[in-house]
């Protein structure tokens, strides 16, 4: 496993021109563009609902938070075999059956890409609770006097949310967005467990880590290209993090 020959930046150039690696970056991008805002909105919504509830607040909080203790592997098992199985014994097709709709083989179809529904819902279930807790903490730190002042001014509902809650949650939102993005970069577990069967992975829906896993640890054992891919990914993440930090800070100045 010791490098036997120094090939300079050759492996980096190979990876950058490898269409499969580039398409894995596109897959990540599409995934992130959907999952980051969706998780953000749902967790914030859940936090707002739970924060305003007095009855059974801790029950609801626990229910949403509980999946955080679950692993991606267990969730993949439930999603693949129990909810989105291709036959009527799966919950989704069972429900469709009540309405007389044909069974949909969620994970066998490439077109339309129903597998995204399976992957995205699994991830939402697993991570919404954690971000909800972050938002809850942020909401509880907002001073009640701000709301009292707003009430005196006659502001309510959306206006209060837009002009008080959201700006006060700026720091929390920045952290949540960054964490969500970094998590999306690491997407591997649910893709691998839901889509691979018997050692093979379909030629679509391959995020970067899945592609690198099969490159470096598959039959090719190509550690040179695998490592080059890892370094490229690291650089991308670093750049994105810095840019995101800059954008949000610029936004600060603008306010």
């Amino acid at each position: 496993m010791t490098p036997t020959k120094f090939v300079g930046v050759g492996n980096y150039l190979d990876m950058l021109s490898d269409p499969a690696f580039r398409s894995s970056l596109v897959t990540f991008l599409a995934f992130a563009v959907f999952i980051v805002p969706t998780t953000f909105v749902i967790s914030l919504g859940a936090a707002l609902l739970v924060a305003r509830t007095r009855v059974m607040q801790s029950f609801f909080r626990s229910v949403f938070f509980l999946p955080t203790a679950c692993s991606y592997v267990v969730a993949s098992l439930i999603w693949k075999m129990s909810i989105f199985s291709g036959i009527r014994s799966g919950l989704a097709n069972g429900v469709l059956g009540w309405f007389g709709v044909d069974s949909i083989p969620w994970l066998s179809l490439a077109d339309p890409p129903w597998y995204w529904l399976v992957i995205v819902t699994a991830r939402l279930w697993l991570q919404v609770g954690f971000y909800m807790i972050l938002f809850l903490a942020g909401i509880q730190r907002i001073s009640p006097t701000l709301y009292e002042a707003a009430a005196i001014d006659g502001a309510e509902g959306w206006k209060v949310f837009r002009h008080i809650t959201l700006p006060q949650l700026r720091a929390t939102s920045t952290a949540v967005l960054l964490l969500l993005l970094i998590n999306a970069f690491q997407a591997f577990d649910e893709f691998y467990n839901i889509l691979s069967t018997f050692g093979t992975y379909p030629p679509y829906a391959r995020p970067p880590l899945v592609y690198l896993y099969y490159t470096a640890l598959g039959s090719g054992q190509d550690f040179g290209h695998g490592s080059a891919g890892a370094v490229i990914l690291t650089l991308i993440i670093a750049i994105v993090a810095v840019v995101q930090g800059r954008i949000l800070r610029l936004g600060d100045r603008g306010e």
Partner: peptide, 20 residues
């Protein structure tokens, strides 16, 4: 700085290190 670079992303070089 390393906070921003999740360990999972560098699993290939880490594997090389650990296998050495």
């Amino acid at each position: 700085a390393t906070l921003l670079i999740p360990a999972a992303v560098t699993f290939v070089p880490s594997f090389v290190l650990v296998s050495t």
